[in-house]
Structures are given as structure tokens and as C-alpha cells.
Amino acid sequence: MKIKLYLVALGALLLSGCSQPMAQAGVQSGGGGTIEAINHTKWAINHFSVDGQSGIDIIGPYQGGGGGCCYGVPSKWQPGMTVRIDWETGVGDMDGFPGFDKRDEYLAWEKKMKAQNKQHSAVVPVPDYTGQKTCGITVHFMPCDEVKVTTSCADYRRPGYPIKDPIKMTEPKVCPQ
């Protein structure tokens, strides 16, 4: 019973916080929703945020996820609107995992895996959503540490979704600077 009450209270707290960032900024929201992501790369997205709000999930290579509550864009799009995306990439597999019972081997493996993590940050434009319903924000992690965002309510790979890139993209040998 205590666990159930705790979960109900936690859910209410999370939901009540959904409108806070926009309210604190004095901006009227044009439509709220979650922070979602689509990972088009071979790297895992260990964590990510949009304007400091967590996307919550770890996202494996060539997968989608997220679910951070909540993100609302201003009711009116303005030219030059941007969002800041911060994220960490890492190895997306468990190759060489020795098991937890081999402590020294595990610690060496863990150190090797963490050494491959990289921190990234990008400020990206928010596409014009004038006259459209908005549903939070979806971040697309692309090869060469590029990022695209959309506020579209359509689902990825469905008609009307504005980002058409395939989920499985190959990173070029040399990325543009």
C-alpha cells in the first residue's frame, strides 16, 4: 500500500512539473508534450537534454526513446528560434563484458567503455511550426554529431512527419567540419 501511494504521489509531482519551465519563463506554451528522440547512429545516447530538461531514457543505436516530461514550445514561432541539445554518446554494445564476478576484469572493461564516452552540445534551429499543432519536441541524433529537431505531432516514418532520414545511417569516414 505504501509503495502504491508513493507511486501516485510521484506521478502527481511529475505531472505538476510539466508546465513549470514555460511558466517560469513567462512564455505561453503553444502545445506541450514529452521530449522524445530518434537515434540514427551506431552510438548509444547515454543521456540527453533539451534546454536543460532531461530526455530521461538511454537510447540504443538505431532506436527511439525519451519520455522526459514535459516540453512546450511558445505559442508563436519566431524566426531564429533555437534549442540547446546536450548529450553523451557511448559504446552501444556489451562486447567483451567479463561478468560482474570477475571484479578486476570487470573494472578494466568498465574503464575502457567509459573512456569512449563523449560529451556533445549543439544549438539547433526550431523549424517553423506556424499553423501546426505542436506536441513537445523530438530530437534526431544524426551521424557526425549533428542534430535535428521537430515539434510535429506526427509519428516518425508516418506521412506528414517532417524528418525523412532513415533510422540506420552510416557515418562517413570523414565528417564535415
Score class of each variant (00 low, 15 high):
32 G>I: 07
33 G>W: 08
33 G>F: 12
33 G>I: 05
34 T>P: 01
34 T>L: 06
35 I>P: 05
35 I>K: 01
36 E>V: 03
36 E>K: 01
36 E>L: 01
36 E>D: 05
37 A>E: 00
37 A>G: 05
37 A>P: 00
37 A>Q: 00
37 A>Y: 00
37 A>H: 00
38 I>R: 07
38 I>S: 01
38 I>Y: 00
38 I>H: 03
39 N>C: 05
40 H>A: 07
40 H>S: 05
40 H>F: 12
41 T>V: 06
41 T>L: 08
42 K>N: 15
42 K>Y: 13
43 W>A: 12
43 W>P: 02
44 A>P: 03
45 I>E: 01
45 I>P: 06
46 N>P: 04
46 N>G: 12
46 N>A: 12
47 H>R: 14
47 H>D: 13
48 F>I: 01
48 F>G: 01
48 F>V: 04
48 F>W: 04
49 S>D: 13
49 S>F: 06
49 S>V: 02
50 V>A: 02
50 V>K: 03
51 D>N: 15
51 D>F: 07
52 G>I: 04
52 G>T: 02
52 G>V: 05
53 Q>D: 06
53 Q>Y: 05
53 Q>R: 09
53 Q>L: 12
55 G>F: 00
55 G>S: 02
55 G>A: 02
55 G>Q: 00
56 I>W: 10
56 I>Q: 09
56 I>G: 01
57 D>G: 04
57 D>P: 02
57 D>W: 06
57 D>A: 14
57 D>Q: 15
58 I>D: 09
59 I>P: 03
59 I>H: 01
59 I>D: 03
60 G>N: 12
61 P>F: 05
61 P>L: 09
61 P>Q: 13
62 Y>C: 05
62 Y>G: 10
62 Y>V: 06
63 Q>H: 09
64 G>A: 07
64 G>S: 11
64 G>I: 00
64 G>L: 02
65 G>I: 01
65 G>F: 02
66 G>I: 00
66 G>M: 00
66 G>N: 00
67 G>H: 13
67 G>R: 10
67 G>Q: 09
68 G>T: 07
68 G>Y: 06
68 G>K: 04
68 G>R: 09
68 G>V: 08
69 C>A: 15
69 C>E: 11
70 C>M: 10
71 Y>T: 10
71 Y>I: 11
71 Y>E: 09
72 G>H: 11
72 G>V: 08
72 G>Q: 12
72 G>E: 08
73 V>D: 10
73 V>F: 14
74 P>D: 08
74 P>M: 14
74 P>N: 11
74 P>H: 11
75 S>L: 14
75 S>H: 14
76 K>I: 15
76 K>D: 09
76 K>W: 10
76 K>L: 10
77 W>M: 11
77 W>E: 12
77 W>F: 13
78 Q>V: 15
78 Q>Y: 07
79 P>W: 13
79 P>A: 11
79 P>R: 09
80 G>M: 11
81 M>C: 13
81 M>H: 14
82 T>V: 15
82 T>P: 07
83 V>T: 08
83 V>G: 05
83 V>W: 13
83 V>C: 07
84 R>Y: 07
84 R>S: 10
84 R>D: 09
85 I>P: 03
86 D>R: 13
86 D>E: 14
86 D>L: 05
87 W>C: 03
87 W>E: 04
87 W>L: 03
